[in-house]
Design a protein around this nucleic acid. Structure first.
Lengths: 259, 259
DNA sequence: GAGGGCGAGCTGGTCGGACCAGCAGACCAG
DNA sequence: CTGGTCTGCTGGTCCGACCAGCTCGCCCTC
């Protein structure tokens, strides 16, 4: 690759800006547990004294932390900025930007969801069989299922559906899977939002979806991880295939059946 | 769940802060393509005039954009802040924070990697078979493999290994898979960094890894997607199992074989 | 004693001005 | 074409100021 002397690269010189150090100190305090979600930071003027920097510097640090979703400072709240619990919102933002900047197609997002939810179903099944997942988690899934059955209208159905997928992801016991599932799911919803309205035959789609979900629950309950995984994937493929260009459907179908 | 009257939620009242509007305007300019990566923003003083806000406000906006990885302002660069191409760094940061804040265990990260790389291998295989993936991508994988063989020392080997996994992810044709693979891989490396040094029998591990990778390439080449997926997962499981508590290994092994 | 109204005190948001160190690019000598 | 110098403007940081408004404690009413 035309590079020279890459054996001994020099580390880039980079003086650290004051506000970055403030950010790191506060981040560290949160990570180490010295500051827990719900607690509040001192006021900007107080912080300015503690760190011995100007208020501008403190504010820039707070803006960074706020943009990272670690802190929220309500305007004119005398109690100071509050430490936020971790939320997948940040991850959601990352994925959304990835989707809007790069040519991240719907097909890629769906592949990703199939992968996530297939694995989640598999893991949930095996954890349940091994007694690591609680019966409560299965009950949650079934409760979400009931909500879907009872749902009236597309919006309510969509909400219940999201809850169902979330419940399965939660049962996987893997919080990364869970967070990503939710994030990507909402991104997909944002993309097909407009197309969804035009979808004719909503009742038929709901019917099919319910059928898939019932099969999924059955597979999970009976400990058939592989089957559960395949059903989860096939369900997604079935549900969204119509929004895809013909050329991309084939690979998705293969992915749904395979592995 | 115990929610009441969720049908008609009120939109949260929230006056928009000036710097947030500046952020959005600039973001929009980037998303719409009016500003492309590599171009430069006007100087802070210029921006302050254009938006008719104070420099503090402009700076806070720039700090947010910078923290989001959309812009970088080099200290005292008279040319102004530069628009950055999208990079997975932001996603990597999200995942890293997810790993440090929540009790994201190594087991969860590994499950996630097995899922990602298993799917990537499957997709790459089928894309290759369908003529959608280029032979170049396969060649890239093999080149990375050669680098691993030629690598001397743990560090160089690790770097080549990372490149290998990246190449497979790239061949999957799914940029989300690719980005996540890289992000989670580096997070895992960060976690086991210290433990890695103590690993005895480095030569044996390298040997086994090379063997797995050879099998993987063979499976990809011969169009056996399911096999490729299983090998990829098993390889990870084999490589990292020793760092896991006994109780968590079983599920991982099941996941490696199953689906 | 309990509840509601009210003011004080401080907060965050924004502004304007100021200083410094240092980079890019122009300019100049070789 | 090279290497050095100069300089204008930049970003980083600081200071001081003003405003609108949220909290909280005080006080008054019932």
């Amino acid at each position: 690759m035309g590079e020279r002397g890459q054996g001994a690269r020099f580390a880039p010189i980079e003086r650290r800006r004051a506000y970055e150090q403030v950010v790191e100190r506060i981040e560290q305090a949160v990570f180490s547990g010295a500051l827990t979600p719900g607690e509040r930071l001192p006021s900007e003027r107080e912080l300015m004294g503690q760190f011995a920097v100007s208020r501008s510097t403190v504010r820039e640090a707070l803006r960074v932390l706020e943009s990272n979703g670690m802190v929220r400072s309500s305007p004119r709240d005398p109690r100071g900025p509050v430490i936020l619990p971790f939320s997948p919102a940040h991850l959601h933002k990352s994925v959304t930007r990835l989707a809007s900047v790069t040519e991240l197609s719907l097909a890629e997002l769906l592949q990703f969801r199939m992968m996530l939810e297939g694995s989640a179903s598999f893991l949930a099944t095996n954890r349940l069989a091994a007694g690591q997942a609680t019966a409560e988690q299965l009950a949650e899934i079934e409760a979400a299922m009931d909500d879907m059955r009872a749902a009236e209208g597309r919006i309510e159905f969509g909400r219940a559906d999201l809850a169902f997928h979330d419940a399965v992801a939660r049962a996987s016991g893997n919080s990364l899977v869970q967070v990503c599932t939710h994030a990507v799911h909402t991104v997909v919803l944002g993309i097909i939002e407009d197309k969804l309205d035009k979808a004719e035959d909503y009742a038929r789609i709901a019917e099919r979806t319910l059928g898939h979900h019932e099969q999924l629950i059955e597979a999970i309950r009976s400990g058939q991880g592989g089957v559960a995984s395949r059903i989860a994937r096939a369900s997604l493929c079935d549900y969204y295939a119509e929004y895809l260009p013909e050329a991309e459907r084939e690979l998705l179908r293969t992915f749904a059946q395979g592995s």
